[in-house]
Amino acid sequence: MTPDAGGEGDPEQRVRIRLRAPVAGAAASAPDPGPEGPRPFVLTAGRVASADPAIGLETQVTAEPGASDDEVALLPPELQAIIALCAEPISVAEISARTRLHFGVTRVLVGDLRAAGHLEVHLGPGDGASDPELILRVIDGLRAIS
């Protein structure tokens, strides 16, 4: 009994269907297939609070250079994907978007990976919003856009 015999079983095909841009009318009237895959917080074993609440959307993350590849290879694919993305400095929001994980899930996983020594989380000096110098630099940078 292979109910997936058609295009359904081919992962390529299925992914393409999921990502297809909605066509006005046609897609809107299609029946809702319901949630797919496991619920988001399964990956964190149900934890919703990160080890470090200071990790924000824009917090920059990099891979820890010392991390051994053997160790990384033993991690679940989601975590490996996160580490792979962090080869260059990247924000937690971007990790969340690119791995298509819920932001809350990403934050917990990043906290875990940091605790395990795989990632470096760059929590800056904190309140940039109160630094006029920083704001002036942003203003100058935006003015240069044409």
């Binding site: 009994m1 992962p11 299925r14 999921r18 990502l19 841009a21 066509v23 994907a81 690119r98 994980l101």
Partner: peptide
Amino acid sequence: MDSVRSPDWPAAPLGGLAANSAAARYGT
């Protein structure tokens, strides 16, 4: 066992990193 489906949620990320742009999601 037609009720068992491999979860396809984590299958997406690596293949299509660019696929999560707003343009891809919302269409033109």
